[in-house]
Computed example of a mutant assay.
Amino acid sequence: MKRSTETTPDGLVIVDKPSGFTSHDVVAKMRGIARTRRVGHAGTLDPMATGVLVLGVEKATKLLGHLALTEKEYLGTVRLGQTTVTDDAEGEVTATAEPSAVEAVTRAAVDTAIAKLTGEIMQVPSKVSAIKIDGVRSYKRARDGEDFEIPARPITVSSFQVHDMRQAHTEDGRPVIDLVVSVVCSSGTYIRALARDLGADLGTGGHLTALRRTRVGPYKLDRARTLEQLQQELTVMPIGDAATAAFPRWDLDTRRAKLLGNGVRLEMPDEYATGSPVAVFDPHGRLLALVESKGGKAKALAVFV
């Protein structure tokens, strides 16, 4: 394995997660590759899913909670005609639509149903999810056979597009429809719940058969590396570059950088008073902190020096 230095630098590792791995599995692998316990991830991916998983190492773990709130983009396949207990291909099939119901689905009907799932909507997450209900993970309650409901949550689906609609068949010869779709959405959106709700609206049932995350905020697949590649050469995006890519950048002079380092809440320029995190740098290009504007002054969200 190639190492540029003996010490793992602070920064982000953009992983192309393989199918069959949980996000925690990837974190565990990265702890071994990077030789540090200080590794975390920004937003989980289901085991079935592949694609962009953003990991933070060392001080960059402080960025993760803020990165997790950014917009995400996916490419997936929705199967109309079957419902599963998990709303994806990993769960047991609980219902199969009548052939006539599947054959009646038109592209116009699909587009109409997708329009209802686009924009600011309320979504009920899958019961087999990590959502906590009264302190207990939803998937555990489902596994234990409990009867419970998950409250709907507001999400934003900025784009939901169908790129291909093709006829297919189940293993026992029943007709189904596979839709190749792309989705751009807010944090907290469950793509398999979109598949479930799309199928329910069309009267066929539906579930997700494939999912690939292609973007988390500004970090895209072209920056991602497989675990095998990272084992050969650990590629870490420096923490300053990572923060500049994800947040507005505010460069301070030496005097104000020192004041901020001493805990003084600086006056923030109006252009940064958006309520969103801002990355603050000193004259040497070092990331000092993530701050937000409170009453026109900089309130620290995370400090890096």
Rank of each mutant, 00 (worst) to 15 (best):
E6A: 13
I14E: 01
D16W: 08
P18M: 02
T22L: 10
H24Y: 11
K29N: 09
R31N: 01
G32A: 09
I33S: 05
V39N: 02
G40I: 12
A42G: 03
L45N: 03
T50N: 05
V52Y: 07
V54A: 02
G56D: 01
T70A: 13
E71N: 13
E71A: 14
G81M: 04
Q82G: 00
D87S: 09
E90I: 06
G91C: 06
A104P: 04
A104G: 03
A104N: 01
V105H: 05
R107D: 14
A115Y: 01
V124S: 05
V124Y: 05
S129N: 13
D134S: 12
D134F: 03
R137W: 07
R143Y: 05
G145D: 07
I150T: 09
M165H: 09
M165G: 07
Q167Y: 11
Q167P: 12
E171Q: 13
R174S: 13
P175G: 05
V176I: 15
V184A: 15
S187V: 10
S187G: 14
G188C: 05
L194N: 08
G199E: 05
G206C: 10
A210L: 09
A210R: 12
R212A: 03
T214M: 00
R215G: 07
P218E: 00
L221Y: 00
A224C: 00
T226N: 06
L227Y: 03
L227A: 01
Q231Y: 04
E233R: 13
L234P: 07
A243V: 09
A243H: 03
A245E: 15
P248E: 11
W250P: 10
D253T: 08
N262T: 04
R265E: 12
S276K: 15
A279M: 09
D282H: 02
L287V: 11
V291T: 13
K299E: 11
L301V: 11
V305Y: 13
